[in-house]
Every structure is written in C-alpha cells, then in structure tokens.
Amino acid sequence: MNDAPILKASKKRGPIPTAAIIIVAVGLILFGVYSGEAAEVFQKAVNICLECIGVG
C-alpha cells in the first residue's frame, strides 16, 4: 500500500474559493498586461535564453 503524500488536501472546497481564485487570477493577468509585463515576457521568449540552455 502506498504512503500518504506530504501535504494533505483531501477535501474539495466549495465553489466560492474556486470562483474567488479565478477572479483574483484574472485581475492579476489584467493588471500585469496593463503594466507591460506581457511585453517583457515576449521580449524574453523571442530571444534565445542563454541561461535556460546552459550558456549564459
């Protein structure tokens, strides 16, 4: 028999926390786009990331 994992999260929470997290997530995305983060991500992603490939 397998052992239980480290962090137990056995019970599914109700719909309210899920809805709240979705609202927070969408809010963070919109604020991030407004503050120019999507453009920063784009700049990083369209160039070869030297650190990621083990050169930088």
Binding site: T18, I21, I22, A25, L28, I29, G32, E37, E40, V41
Partner: peptide, 17 residues
C-alpha cells in the same frame, strides 16, 4: 520589478481550472 502579476495570474488561472 520584483513581482510578476501577469505570469503568476496566468499560472493561478491554469491551476484553478
């Protein structure tokens, strides 16, 4: 910046879905 709202929000959205 020291925080990434856009990326963290995206990961949060993927995770909660």
């Amino acid at each position: 910046k020291n925080v990434s709202y856009y990326v963290f929000g995206t990961i949060l959205l993927f995770g909660v879905l």
